[in-house]
């Protein structure tokens, strides 16, 4: 049956399937965003528009606090640049994963959907990244992200505080789910992650260092720890292969 599908259809379907758990996870996180956006004085429409046009978690949460504080447009641009700079690194990694001849409009589409989670499922695909896979994963994930925002903005006021508190951990649960499994395959990833946690904690609480804003902190820690990890434990083709294989087995 499956062999009757074209490669494009097959990849699109696999993208949708990979995107479903992401979309469901996004529902919880964007629900929390919707609630906060309305609290910050935005309308339900504006909150939903932000999610549709941005598709970032940390960036959006920081953005509404800039709006609430009536910060300058320049400050808004700076905050987004710093907090979302990691997407530039992910986009650079994806540039190595797509076919060199991939046309620009498809590159624009894949770029629009660079998030931590979509990047995670895309980069761990075996072989060249098919744009149809990205399309499937992005469409379903963004739908979840936008729908959750709308629902949260629309109904947040009537939810009990305890439920909202529980939803606060969802975003981080997702991050843990992305980092831990490959850490089992490559102990260097585990070491790098552990090092990142220690440095990040130091930057959050140590005198002087704690004055640095959270967005800037993420950038400094990411560049510093990744450079050190790359120098100490250069990633070999074998380690990368192992991670791909692991994901491949999981997806079957």
């Amino acid at each position: 049956m499956r062999s009757s599908l074209s490669d494009t259809e097959k990849n699109f379907r696999e993208g949708i399937i990979s995107g479903i758990p992401i979309a469901l996870g996004y529902l919880a996180v964007s629900f929390a965003f919707g609630i906060q956006a309305v609290k910050a004085g935005l309308s339900v429409f504006q909150a939903t528009l932000i999610s549709l046009s941005n598709v970032t978690s940390a960036g959006q949460f920081a953005g509404i606090s800039v709006i609430a504080a009536a910060g300058s447009y320049l400050e808004m641009a700076g905050v987004q640049l710093v907090i979302n700079l990691r997407y530039m690194l992910m986009s650079a990694a994806l540039s190595q994963k797509v076919a060199p001849e991939l046309p620009i409009y498809k590159r624009l589409g894949i770029a629009f959907g660079v998030t931590d989670e979509i990047f995670g499922v895309s980069i761990t695909r075996p072989g060249v990244l098919a744009p149809a896979f990205s399309a499937g994963a992005i469409i379903i994930s963004v739908a979840g992200w936008v729908l959750g925002t709308f629902l949260g903005a629309f109904s947040g006021e009537i939810l009990p505080a305890r439920l909202i508190s529980a939803l606060g951990v969802a975003l981080y649960g997702m991050f843990v789910a992305i980092v831990v499994p490959p850490s089992r395959e490559d102990k260097n990833i585990a070491l790098a992650a552990l090092f990142a946690v220690i440095v990040s904690t130091a930057f959050t609480y140590a005198p002087v260092l704690k004055e640095i804003s959270s967005g800037t902190r993420i950038i400094i820690v990411t560049v510093m720890v990744s450079v050190i990890a790359a120098l100490l434990f250069p990633a070999t083709e074998q380690t990368a292969e192992k991670i791909l294989k692991e994901r491949g087995v999981e997806n079957d």
């Binding site: 990691r86 690194l89 931590d116 980092v179 993420i218």
Partner: peptide, 30 residues
């Protein structure tokens, strides 16, 4: 990056750096 970088990055250092970035960022954010 996705539109400007058209060639394969050859440098083992940059490759390794990009390999660690997602895990390091997410850990630091968590």
């Amino acid at each position: 990056p996705l539109t400007l970088i058209r060639q394969e990055i050859k440098s083992p250092f940059i490759k390794s750096f990009l390999y660690y970035v997602p895990y390091v960022t997410l850990s630091a954010m968590t």
